[in-house]
Amino acid sequence: MSNQGIHQKLVTLFSLLLTVLFVYTAVSKLIELDTFQWRLERMPYVAPYATLISWGVPFLELVIAGLLWFRRYRTMAFYASFILLGLFTIYIIIVLRYSDSIPCSCGGVISALGWKDHILLNITFMVFALLGILWSKKQYNMQSHQNTT
């Protein structure tokens, strides 16, 4: 199997994993929207924007999960995934400067993870998104080139 074939399959796999992550966390947040908002109201820096974030983040996660399955928008969705996960990670690192007793405001069982495990999980998915950007871009460029020749 050529590298291109493997990359294509891996891009699909990364899309699948990111979709599961985003849909899972978005739905978990929406199921317990009140709790999620309540926690955000007590988090450093983000408290004034708790209502906006409590609706905006799950919405954004669902949009990204959807866009990952449209070839045309896949690269953009990988970029958005990378940025969103990056922002979460930066926020966690900033919060850890305050205290490691603050609970996670994330969805579902992921909230049971410790902060360090959470950073590790985010970095892993950021790597998937980064590889997705590189390989889906390559595929899109090759297909565009084939269509024009």
Partner: peptide
């Protein structure tokens, strides 16, 4: 993902 979200509420 939706199923898991409800199952692990």
């Amino acid at each position: 993902a939706v199923g898991l979200a409800f199952a692990t509420e």
